[in-house]
Amino acid sequence: MLEIKDLHANVEGKEILKGLNLKVNAGEIHAVMGPNGAGKSTLANIIAGKEEYEVTDGDILLNGDDIEELGPEERAHKGVFMSFQYPVEIPGVTVTNFMKTAINETRKAQGLEEMPAKDMLKKIREKSELLEIDRKFLSRSLNEGFSGGEKKRNEIFQMAMMEPKLAILDETDSGLDIDALRIVANGVNKLKSQDNAIIVITHYQRLLDYIVPDYVHVLYDGKIVKSGTKELALELEEKGYDWIKEEINA
């Protein structure tokens, strides 16, 4: 599904990613962990196509195609979705209208007809129930005045609506209490299938109790320095990141 080869990337002239390799197949869940400043969010934003991030070397292949030249919307049309660490408030656009526009623009790009209003409403109802989102919430301005937890839940609601092939969850657990965490994780697990893949980016192991990864990678200083199974996450939780730093620097 996704193959990243020797990726180097700059933000405002500073090199953040320094030769990152990652391969994610359909049906897999990968966790990317690492200390602050390692480049986790940069990786997520680069896959989603944020233009301030400059790829200086390497390739990002989605189903074999290089997506580097594609705008964020074109990547979304190909099934890439990022759950934002800091979802943006957009006063004046309701959650429902935002999703209608997003889905119909995506369908248009894929050569499909607009989704009939009835189907759209049905889908909105189903997916909002999955995330235990109150209906009233959907007619509010997108993210405006939402609590941290509400914003994150809303991100996963959008993921449920968009049904991406590749979902990147950027620090989705931050700002969530334990109940909200369960709801969000439950939603993500229900959306998981053999046809899609998920990359969970997190600082803490906590979320991985609920969204169980097939692989865990440690990102440090712009590279993936260690990969393993879910036990690696537990080890990181227990021992912190220092031993990895020592291992690298040794």
Binding site: A48, G49, K50, E51, E52, G71, P72, E73, R75, A76, H77, V80, F81, M82, F84, P87, V88, I90, F98, T101, A102, I103, E105, T106, A109, Q158, M162
Partner: peptide, 19 residues
Amino acid sequence: LDENALFYMRSRGIGEKEA
């Protein structure tokens, strides 16, 4: 125009002009 908001909307499949 807020560039972060534009990126957010585009990442949901909404074209730049429409966003």
